[in-house]
């Protein structure tokens, strides 16, 4: 099955780390990207760069920032081929955000 591992970061997490720690954490992210079963993924620019778009009465409305004020922000994702949810959970638990105050949402991908 294919899963999306959606990574939610708590703001300020990486800024709070020392340079060495941050480098180690990024190293972990790169290692996961190379791990067997991981077939894709992207890291997003910080949430401050977000623009939210809505269309009402054929008018495009744009607002600065993410679509909702939440404690955690969507920071990136991996796509994972795994046998079952247990394997996906195991991979998700290796993602640094999960232990650094953020969380990882595991969602099966619709397969066509």
């Amino acid at each position: 099955m294919k899963y999306a591992l959606l990574i939610y970061d708590r703001p300020g997490t990486y800024e709070a780390l020392s340079d060495d720690e941050r480098e180690a954490v990024f190293g972990e992210y790169f290692a996961i990207a190379e791990a067997p079963g991981v077939v894709g993924g992207e890291q997003l620019q910080p949430v401050e760069t977000a623009t939210t778009v809505r269309v009402q009465d054929e008018q495009t409305l744009t607002t600065d920032g993410p679509f909702a004020d939440t404690k955690e922000f969507f920071g990136g994702y991996y796509l994972l081929e795994a046998d079952d949810l247990d394997a996906a959970i195991e991979m998700a638990s290796r993602i640094p955000a999960a232990r650094l105050g953020g969380s990882v949402e595991v969602r099966p991908v619709v397969e066509r």
Binding site: M1, Y3, A82, D83, D84, L85, D86, A88, V106, P108
Partner: peptide, 10 residues
């Protein structure tokens, strides 16, 4: 079914 919860002994 949709999330692939395994049907197996862990």
């Amino acid at each position: 079914k949709a999330a692939g919860i395994p049907f197996s002994v862990p």
